[in-house]
């Protein structure tokens, strides 16, 4: 059994008796393995945020079950244990910081769990170092940049010593620099601390860096697999109005116009490597043509 298991879950925000029920999730089954880095892609309204909230029992599915480390999210006696293990980071960094001093905000989670003071101190320092914000521990959050605030929010979750962090579009409100900061932090936590990461995003370049990509559309899983497996299905993604990374798009169009390109490049580097021989051949051909 995987670390987080969703079994055929359905969800609707409408009342059960409502005449017209709009199902946000229509039977989703998926598993998140321990130590994985998963990207969850999809449009607004595809159900990706909703499914994230079922992972830490913020929402309970109308049908089906969600298990976290074999614990049923419907079981109220393990509610705080589940929320401790699966931390959720939201989109707007301003709205999830509670205290006026960085270190006191990071301490909020462990304080709620009733951890002894010396242990909280140790965890807060460790968490702030993990997100490289230790030097800012006495600052006021409102004076920090968006990327820094989001890293504080992540530190606040780490201080609860979770197994898994679910992030609901954490970079949507950040500038490019803040996005890189947050993404680098997540990869570091995944590699060094073995924390499972579920990243909900609509940025393709973020999804490319994940170990596994799950694409959602209208409350169902459209496709899943490694980034290569997913983004090589350019037609399927286009049909559902989803983007593919620019490098993949370029290669796809070149292939469609008859150029011979190997594989499916996902990043700019891979794309350059794939195009180089092609361009060299073309210039050589041109040179011969001149004479």
């Amino acid at each position: 059994m995987d670390y987080i298991n969703a079994e055929n879950i359905t969800f609707s925000y409408d009342e059960p008796e409502a005449a017209e029920r709009h199902e946000v999730l229509r039977g989703v089954s998926l598993g998140i393995r321990k130590g994985e880095f998963v990207a969850l892609l999809g449009h607004n309204g595809s159900g990706k945020s909703t499914i994230a909230k079922t992972f830490n029992a913020m929402l309970l599915p109308s049908g089906g079950k969600v298990y976290v480390d074999k614990m049923d999210t419907q079981d109220e006696s393990v509610l705080y244990e589940i929320r401790r293990r699966v931390g959720l980071v939201l989109q707007n960094p301003d709205n999830q910081l509670v205290a006026s001093v960085v270190e006191e905000d990071v301490a909020f989670g462990p304080e709620n769990l009733g951890v002894p003071p010396e242990e909280i101190r140790r965890r807060v320092d460790e968490a702030l170092k993990a997100v490289e914000m230790y030097d800012f521990r006495l600052n006021a959050p409102y004076k920090l940049s968006g990327g820094q605030k989001q890293r504080i929010a992540i530190a606040g979750i780490i201080a609860m010593q979770p197994d898994c962090i679910v992030l609901d579009e954490p970079t949507a409100m950040l500038d490019p620099r803040g996005r890189t900061e947050v993404l680098d932090t997540l990869h570091k936590l995944n590699k060094e601390k073995g924390i499972t990461i579920v990243l909900i995003t609509h940025y393709m370049d973020e999804a490319v860096q994940a170990g596994r990509v799950i694409v959602m559309d209208s409350g169902r899983i459209l496709t899943e697999g490694t980034p290569e497996e997913v983004f090589s299905q350019v037609e399927l993604l286009k049909k559902h109005h989803l983007d593919v990374p620019q490098a993949t798009e370029l290669a796809y169009r070149l292939k469609a116009s008859g150029f011979d390109l190997p594989g499916c490049p996902l990043t700019i580097e891979e794309c350059v490597a794939a195009l180089e021989p092609l361009l060299k051949k073309a210039t050589v051909g041109e040179a011969y043509g001149d004479h």
């Binding site: 929320r83 301003d94 709205n95 909020f108 304080e111 009733g114 101190r121």
Partner: peptide
């Protein structure tokens, strides 16, 4: 109000459940 809703959710995600059983970092 939107902020309040978000904050309430973020607090619940961080296991906030009132003053019962809560400790403090700074004594």
């Amino acid at each position: 109000f939107r902020r309040a809703y978000d904050l309430a959710m973020a607090m619940e995600c961080r296991c906030y459940h009132g003053g019962e059983g809560r400790t403090k970092m700074k004594v």
